[in-house]
């Protein structure tokens, strides 16, 4: 794989919890490169360190050791403020528990990251409207989260994650709280994103989600135990390779929204 194309890169990543004899290595000497456009699924049993890995890659937690790079910039040494700016510009998160702001409507939830990024209200509203339409929730834009189903909430969360055109979307068990129909809705969105060249890192228990990925990493006890290319590119351990296509859903959307400038 070409190193320069890696959107996310980790070297010797370690994260420990606790002290003394109770000290646990949640992430243990992990190396990883996620090229642009790749959809990476991380699977493993509960407590194996998947979510911690996601938090470390997204700058939500600081590693105990090792390095994390985002778009060619080392981020584990950044200040909290710089990390926040990085997240605003480069990262979108989707959580199992949705984490929508309950007193804001679907549209207002999606607008929020755009407003935090300093976009005007009109731009934020336009962007939110387009994204909600793309996730099939245009008619639910004025609904509060409490009046949406779980699947609808997660689609709002996906729209929110995409509102600032992130380099990479990190999804932590995005279908963990959803029924089959809602899971399929979300999967369709992820497939569209993958097709559009969006880099995705998905932590999941759900094999249906993993099956949509270009690459599957299995974790156990904080370590990678398997690294599989799913698009017929073979199996290997350690650094993965692969690139996604740059056309499709989001590419077209980017042109429509015109926020890149």
């Amino acid at each position: 794989m070409n190193v320069s194309s890696a959107v996310v890169r980790a070297r010797g990543l370690v994260r420990t919890h606790g002290r003394g004899p109770g000290r646990v290595r949640a992430v243990d000497e992990v190396d990883l490169e996620v090229p642009q456009g790749q959809t990476l699924a991380v699977m493993g049993p509960s407590g194996c360190g998947k979510s911690t890995l996601l938090h470390l890659l997204g700058g939500l937690e600081r590693p105990t050791g090792g390095e994390v790079w985002m778009d060619g910039r080392r981020i584990d040494t950044l200040s909290e403020r710089a990390l926040a700016r990085m997240r605003r510009r480069s990262v979108g998160f989707v959580f199992q528990a949705f984490h929508l702001v309950e007193e804001l409507t679907a549209a207002e939830n999606v607008e929020l990251p755009a407003l935090l990024a300093g976009r005007s209200r009109r731009q934020a509203r336009r962007r939110a409207s387009l994204l909600l339409e793309r996730v099939g929730l245009a008619d639910r834009a004025r609904h509060l989260p409490s009046r949406l189903s779980g699947g609808q909430r997660q689609r709002v969360a996906v729209a929110r994650a995409l509102v600032n055109d992130p380099l990479v979307v990190f999804a932590d068990e995005p279908t963990g709280n959803l029924d089959t129909a809602a899971t399929l809705d979300v999967l369709r969105i992820f497939e569209d994103l993958r097709a559009a060249g969006q880099t995705l890192v998905i932590v999941t228990h759900d094999e249906r989600v993993a099956a949509t990925a270009d690459r599957l990493i299995s974790m156990r006890d904080g370590m990678f135990v398997d690294d599989t290319r799913l698009a017929g590119t073979g199996t290997g351990t350690g650094t993965g390779t692969g690139t996604g296509t740059g056309t499709g859903w989001l590419g077209g959307l980017g042109g429509l929204i015109g926020l890149e400038g």
Binding site: E80, R81, A84, R85, H99, L100, P113, L116
Partner: peptide, 16 residues
């Protein structure tokens, strides 16, 4: 705290 944590994942700085 949950909403503020979400805001931070969305790019709000601790200072903000």
């Amino acid at each position: 705290r949950a909403n503020m944590a979400v805001a931070r994942t969305l790019g709000a700085t601790p200072g903000q």
